[in-house]
Amino acid sequence: MPDQVLFAMEVTLNGLMAGVLYSLVALGFVLIFKASGIFNYAQGVMALFAAATLVGIMDGQVPFSHLINAIFGTDLHHFGWHVPALLAIVLTVGVMIVLAWLVQKLVMRHLVNQEPIILFMATIGLAYFLEGLSDLMWGSSIKTLDVGLPQGINDTIDRVTFDAFGYGFFIDNLDIVAAIIAALLVIALMAFNQYTKEGRALRAVADDHQAALSVGISLNFIWVLVWSLAGFVALVAGMMWGAKSGVQFSLSLIALKALPVLMLGGFTSIPGAIVGGLIIGVGEKLFEFLIGPMVGGATENWFAYVLALLFLVFRPQGLFGEKIIERV
């Protein structure tokens, strides 16, 4: 096979891996948007908060240690223990559920029936609040997250492809694991949505709040549920990105990458979020590889947004945006 084709294949694979992560972040948005019509600006910060909490718990950090030390003149920093990754993940999930409950109880519950723009503003406030809370609880330094995911080049793929094509593909182990976990999570979420009683209730709420209320579905419960799910998705996304490039403020910017994914896939479609993520992931890598050299490179910074813009102009509901059923 010619080298160019092989390179392109490798680039495509890498793009798919990155794309799965984009899908995951976008999924967090879709979950909340579908069920409550809220565009959750805080989704990226939730990923940051989740990752910071995970690191903090694993390292046995004392939460709010700066605050405590400043008030009581103590010198606390660490509990002096380390929590195993799996347990820490479970605890972090617990924290995200408590957070979801608090968001619903303290903020969203009081904004029922408000305009979408007001709900959106509330999530902007939430984003800044969470960002501050994350710093206050765990400090603002850059943290490394090591939950024991494999790192480095996958030798097997390298060897197999080398034997087959005379050219070894460089695929990062972390990307492979991230892709598999994200794929499993997506499948689990879709199955939950489609086949469980709560999933059905969730879709019912997404279709018609009033009717859902009338059959006895509690909106409060459903909203805590979607915020918890979104929190869980944020944790997984934060974990993958955090393992890759450290837990720091820039992690919250992954949410920006989710926007073009949503414009492609539609804000209300779970399959849309997945396919959209993959298209953007592969698209930006291939574009950089094929066209990049002609325009001086660095196309990855803008490719996704330009693609999203084209979609906004020509197909605003996205690839999979739910058709509005108009029939009486």
Binding site: K197, A211, S214, I325
Partner: peptide
């Protein structure tokens, strides 16, 4: 006590059977 709302208010994107099942929720 359950209300059937004016204008039906079925869950449009759910199938008819799924709609019926939501009535079983409580």
């Amino acid at each position: 006590v359950i209300q059937v709302m004016e204008g039906r208010h079925c869950f449009e994107h759910l199938t008819v059977e799924e709609n019926l099942l939501t009535g079983f929720y409580t």
